[in-house]
């Protein structure tokens, strides 16, 4: 009986609290839609962030994985979600879908909240490759673009190959003539690369780390303005092409268009605090993910930049004609 009483009064008190603060965001559980399957990079980073956010926001967070169609299904769910701030989602480079006719996502479809992760793309070769530095590789590609196969680590026109193609475009290479090879994720590309099926691969450094340690592949350059932690000996692409190169993936939280301003504010501050927590920083570092903070306004600018860059490179690659 005693237990029952305690329990009943606890429920009563909690119930009162719920009523009293009902108008304060968030008053009930939150949902984050992840347009990626369980266990992938997008899922892992979001789950680590969500664990911190649950503490910050004081409500449980449900993660919904919708990785079908390379993320199109999940992004559509975010775009069509009720804009009450209770459902947000993971945003990542999305502009490429437009050029392959899969979907047409625009910055205006989403409310940017905050960016929390960024990883740079890199250009990899197999150990047996004749190329030991970026310059010789780029020169060879310039001389005979159709003679080489480059693996995209996923669908082509996506996060890893577009920045590399952009760099090649600036170097004066006819990127449309290169054989861009699509595949299922970075792992399939690494097998192709080490078995001699392709000449180059574009991927992030952490994805290739174990094969780099095994001496099966090496990175010619990373597309980052400063050295990547843990991979300090990988040369920066900017040193070869003469101007800083920064390209790769970014992961951010965003909601459907028209999310209430106070909800955006609450989410943004919670993410800012989560990113400052020692636990989150350590777990991201251990798992090999880079931290990159951008607030709502900066994220909006990044998304606009991303759409412009993608349009330029995809146009040069011959898509959307």
């Amino acid at each position: 009986m005693g237990t029952f009483h305690t329990l009943a009064s606890a429920v009563f008190v909690v119930g009162l609290a719920g009523v009293a603060f009902a108008d304060e965001f968030p008053a009930r559980p939150l949902t984050i839609v992840v347009p990626a399957g369980a266990g992938g990079g997008g899922d892992t980073t979001t789950r680590m962030l969500a664990r911190e956010l649950e503490g910050e926001l004081g409500q449980p967070i449900t993660i919904i994985n919708q990785g079908q169609g390379g993320g199109v299904v999940g992004l559509t769910s975010i775009r069509n979600a009720k804009a009450d701030g209770y459902t947000v989602g993971l945003l990542f480079p999305y502009a490429g879908y437009k050029f392959t006719g899969q979907a047409d996502f625009k910055g205006a479809d989403f409310t940017p909240v905050a960016n929390f992760n960024g990883d740079s793309s890199s250009l990899l070769v197999a150990e047996s490759s004749p190329f030991t530095d970026l310059k010789s590789a780029l020169d060879a590609l310039k001389a005979d673009p159709s003679g080489f196969n480059v693996h995209c680590s996923g669908g082509c026109g996506s996060v890893w190959d577009i920045p590399v193609a952009g760099m090649m475009l600036d170097y004066g290479i006819d990127v449309a003539k290169i054989n861009w090879i699509p595949g299922q994720g970075a792992a399939s590309g690494l097998t192709e690369l080490s078995s001699g099926g392709v000449d180059f691969q574009t991927a992030s450094l952490p994805e290739a780390a174990s094969l780099m340690q095994a001496g099966q592949v090496r990175a010619l350059a990373v597309l980052s303005p400063e050295p990547v932690a843990g991979f300090e000996d990988v040369p920066l692409a900017g040193d070869t092409v003469g101007h800083p190169v920064d390209g790769g993936t970014w992961r951010a939280i965003g909601g459907p268009a028209g999310m209430p301003a106070e909800a955006v504010e609450v989410w943004q501050e919670a993410i800012r605090n989560a990113m400052n927590s020692e636990e989150f920083r350590t777990s991201m570092k251990t798992a090999g993910f880079g931290l990159k903070w951008l607030d709502s306004a900066q994220l909006k600018a990044l998304m606009e930049q991303h759409e412009a860059d993608t349009a330029r490179v995809m146009g040069a690659l011959g898509y959307g004609k």
Partner: peptide, 27 residues
């Protein structure tokens, strides 16, 4: 041995290993 998943289940295992700081690979 190389951190490359053999199927969808091991893909999940690998990501869990990475999160735990056990980087699968020859090392």
């Amino acid at each position: 041995v190389f951190g490359i998943p053999g199927d969808a289940i091991t893909a999940i295992v690998i990501s869990v290993m990475f999160i735990k700081g056990i980087n699968p690979g020859p090392t």
